[in-house]
Amino acid sequence: MSDVKKFLYVNRKAPHGTIYALESLEVVLIGAAFEQDVALAFLDDGVFQLVKGWDTSELGAKNFQPAYTALGDYDVQKVYVERESLEERGLSEDDLIEMTYEDEDDDFAEKSSIRIVSREEMAKIMADADVILSF
């Protein structure tokens, strides 16, 4: 299919301080209906969106973290997380939530969507996308 474009959603903001993270998530969920090739990128403070263990009860806000784990159902299979951004913030892959998808070409085996990439690789991923949506 020649009309399938590579969409890259770039997330650079922490989850609660601004509305960007939630807005990005909603756009990804809506965009999934159009059956394009979707990838998510998390860099800078965006990596905080994937840090597990949110408890927003005291904040009086909805905890939208579980929705990230539903993205596999929405055919989001590529989630790129920048290693340097994690390290600068004292984080590693172990601090992140699990995100999975079912691989239709491999008997629906459940596989991790998260791919830790270097800053250099992230630059290439951006260069490679047809459309970039930044949040």
Binding site: A32, Q65, P66, A67, T69, A70, D73
Partner: peptide
């Protein structure tokens, strides 16, 4: 309850 979102029809069918 699990994901905090109401699924789109395509996702509902699949699930």
């Amino acid at each position: 309850d699990e994901y905090q979102i109401a699924p789109a029809i395509r996702v509902l069918v699949k699930a």
